[in-house]
Amino acid sequence: MNRITARRRHPLARYAVLLFALALLGGVYTVAAPAGQSADAAIASGKVDDVAAGKKLFEQSCASCHGLNLEGTKTGPTLVGVGAAAVDFQVSSGRMPAAQPGAQAPRKQKYPWVNETTIRQLAAYVQSKGGGPAVPSDDAVDPAKGNSAKGGELFRANCIQCHNFVGAGGALTEGKYAPDLNSSTPKQIYEAMVTGPQAMPPFNDSTITPEQKRDMIAYIVEVRGQKDPGGFGLGRIGPVTEGLALWVVGISLLVLAAIWITAKRRQKKS
């Protein structure tokens, strides 16, 4: 006791007390804060800084279409409540920010400033405005943990009418289309299902459970990774390319063969 009281007038004591108080405050805050706030995943995991940085990015690259407060404009829908999953899907696949307005934003090369950090920051900002579906965990989208056969049945029942048997994509009305699923990451497939981007309907967790989503991801990933046992896959879009191959390769070759055979004639003896 004496030792402490003896040094209480030490010139550094006031700093020590201040440091202790700050540490205590910080410690209590980190323990108490999550319990005290809404269970908002983005804010909980992210730092307050992410939201601020995200806001800045948003104002630079998104606000011209979606509005300064995510309220939406004539050229872009409102983003209130779309959630971090929607942001992650759109921005990580290069669809957003869009290059130009159109029926549908295509998957494209990402802008140089887009990376994991900036996507997380943007997602945190959008999530802070009205919540919405969160980015799924790696475990939730792991194809290895899904049952591809079950996923296949769900895939055929829910997805192929637009995306084709093997996810080769297809056309929709009014210039829209269902993109092919060959370059989508498992995470993006999951996010597309929960958020229903562009022309796609959302499949929330009560329609298709998270496990079922993982099964479907397992099916898509397994089938698209298959080596075609029958030779060249012809784009896997069915009889259209098969018919094309038949006429362009098959009939052409046989016509050439016919011309060749009949060009050979017996020399006239004279």
Binding site: I160, F165, G170, P239, V240, E242, G243
Partner: peptide
């Protein structure tokens, strides 16, 4: 039903 359901040529 699938997108791109075509018959043979």
């Amino acid at each position: 039903i699938s997108a791109g359901s075509q018959p043979d040529f």
